[in-house]
């Protein structure tokens, strides 16, 4: 299970990305994109994020996961296609020399913070 480690990395990324005048407790939502190839189970990631957030100042934050489908480009015929995992084969020419354009990696894409006047 790599979700715990990834959740810890998300918490660190949020702390590093927040403007200095904003406390981590003001964060109500954390948005991440997770590539389908990364074999992250969203429910598990949310479960462990919720488990560790209390001790990290992000106790008010809800984790929102956007799963990104794997898209490749064939180096042989330049065709772009959505990958039906686990096959990395070009559906047009059958070639196996394909580069991954999307669907790999975990990215923090934004946070929502509660504005001071709403307090």
């Amino acid at each position: 299970m790599h979700e715990l480690y990834i959740a810890e990395c998300i918490v660190k990324s949020v702390s590093k990305s927040l403007p200095q005048n904003l406390p981590t407790t003001s964060v109500t939502e954390v948005r991440v994109q997770v590539g389908q190839l990364d074999a992250v189970i969203p429910d598990t990631l949310i479960f462990v994020f919720d488990a560790i957030k209390r001790n990290s100042g992000l106790s008010n934050a809800k984790l929102n996961i956007d799963q990104i489908e794997v898209v490749c480009r064939c180096r042989g015929c330049s065709y772009e296609f959505g990958v039906e995992l686990p096959l990395f084969l070009c559906p047009r020419c059958g070639g196996g020399d394909v580069e991954i354009l999307r669907g790999r990696g975990i990215r923090l894409t934004g946070v929502t913070v509660q504005e001071a006047e709403e307090n």
């Binding site: 990834i6 990395c9 660190k12 990324s13 990305s17 990696g105 975990i106 934004g110 913070v113």
Partner: peptide, 14 residues
């Protein structure tokens, strides 16, 4: 307020 961020979550690891 929404704050957009683009950051590789594994940047420290990398």
């Amino acid at each position: 307020m929404e704050i957009p961020i683009i950051r590789d979550v594994l940047e420290e690891s990398n």
